[in-house]
């Protein structure tokens, strides 16, 4: 079965209910600079993972496993995965 390379994007952020000190500090910094329209900021991590897989679904599933075991701390973080595009290698 042929495998192809997929560019998988992973967005990791603290769960909605978890306190996000970094987001709060950035929000306040923006307020101080006059960006009053800012209601809230959540900070997180963005990763690009090049994955060899048989299908986009498989790339998605394997990356989810990576998130559960290493990339995200699922005690406090949640993640979102998009199989954005085929990577040009």
């Amino acid at each position: 079965m042929g495998k192809q390379q997929y560019l998988v994007e992973v967005f990791i952020s603290l769960k909605e209910v978890v306190n996000d000190p970094q987001g709060l500090a950035i929000r306040d910094g923006l307020h101080n600079l006059g960006f009053d329209e800012v209601d809230g900021v959540r900070a997180g991590k963005y990763l690009q993972v090049s994955v060899n897989a048989g299908s986009p679904e498989q790339a998605q599933q394997r990356t989810a496993e990576m998130c559960d075991t290493l990339l995200a701390n699922t005690v406090i973080e949640e993640y979102r995965i998009t199989v954005a595009d085929r990577a040009t290698s």
């Binding site: 000190p21 970094q22 500090a25 950035i26 306040d28 910094g29 101080n32 600079l33 900070a43």
Partner: peptide, 15 residues
């Protein structure tokens, strides 16, 4: 300064 959140020194420099 400002917890070094975002980048160290990044927010303080606008004080």
């Amino acid at each position: 300064s400002y917890g070094d959140y975002l980048r160290a020194g990044a927010i303080a420099r606008f004080s």
